[in-house]
């Protein structure tokens, strides 16, 4: 049996909102250590890797490994029925064909229960764990979201170049061109505003703006985003959870 209780429904809401426009359905793999998901979008350009560790939950138990096939649009509708501050418990029997979703209002004496029909999803898993990294940038997630939105007004591609002491984001299209350069900065009073850049090799990569638009839907999950880049390899965009992460692997564009 699986039972996981979130202190606030808002966390699961944010996770599902960040995933549902990229993949319509995916398997949630539940073990005694927590819940993980790997899913690839239909065009096989963007991969989502989610880990919700056991410690994220107020209470967690999973007696036997369970795979829950979940339609994210339907899941989003049901979890949208709870208030952000409610306790949210997900519950499934070992051979369940539904997922129980229970909201508890912390003030009123009110409990709401829903059942989501589970799906049988056949999906392959990609080996993404052994990637090397040439450059790592950590910056405020809201800043990264604004850069992606601003550059998307110019072009369907965003070029990222990283040198020893700066990262440059630039786009060029029919109406013109633009660029944003960021440099490392330590803000002691507001550590969430700090920017770090570490570099083994200079980077010059281009990514599709429409996929970046999907990635930045995770902005509300974390104040920071970490971008790991390697020449001629997918970019990794990581939003940390209180215990775990939501990562996106985005295949780069290349010149013919």
């Amino acid at each position: 049996m699986l039972e996981g209780k979130f202190e606030e429904a808002s966390l699961l809401k944010k996770i599902v909102e960040a995933m549902k426009d990229c993949v319509s359905s995916c398997n949630f793999n539940c073990t005694e250590n927590g819940i993980s998901v790997q899913a690839v979008d239909n065009s096989r350009v963007l991969l989502i890797s989610l880990l919700i560790e056991k410690d994220t939950f107020e209470e967690y138990r999973c007696d036997r490994n369970i795979t829950l096939g979940i339609g994210l649009g339907s899941f989003s509708k049901i979890i949208g029925n709870g208030a952000n501050s409610d306790y949210l418990t997900i519950q499934a029997e070992d051979d369940a064909d539904t997922l129980g979703i229970i909201f508890e209002d912390k003030v009123k004496d009110k409990i709401s229960e829903y059942n989501l029909k589970l799906l049988d999803i056949d999906a392959d898993l990609l080996e993404v764990d052994a990637m090397e990294t040439d450059a790592t940038i950590t910056l405020p997630s809201a800043d990264f979201a604004k850069i992606c939105k601003d550059m998307k007004t110019l072009s369907e591609s965003l070029q990222i170049t990283v040198t020893k002491d700066s990262a440059k984001f630039q786009s060029a299209g029919e109406i013109g061109s633009g660029s944003v350069v960021i440099k490392p900065k330590t803000d002691i009073d507001h550590p969430e505003e700090s920017i770090t850049i570490s570099l083994d090799k200079p980077i010059d990569l281009s990514f599709g703006s429409k996929y970046l638009s999907d990635i930045i839907k995770a902005t509300s999950l974390s104040q920071k985003v970490t971008i790991k880049l390697t020449e001629d390899s997918p970019g990794v965009f990581e939003y940390k959870l209180p215990s775990g992460y939501l990562r996106f692997y985005l295949a780069p564009k290349f010149d013919e």
């Binding site: 065009s43 990609l126 080996e127 993404v128 072009s155 591609s157 290349f254 010149d255």
Partner: peptide, 14 residues
């Protein structure tokens, strides 16, 4: 503005 790559070019199936 370049050709979009696919993940299958970079990662093998587990």
């Amino acid at each position: 503005t370049g050709t979009q790559g696919r993940l299958d070019k970079f990662f093998v199936v587990k």
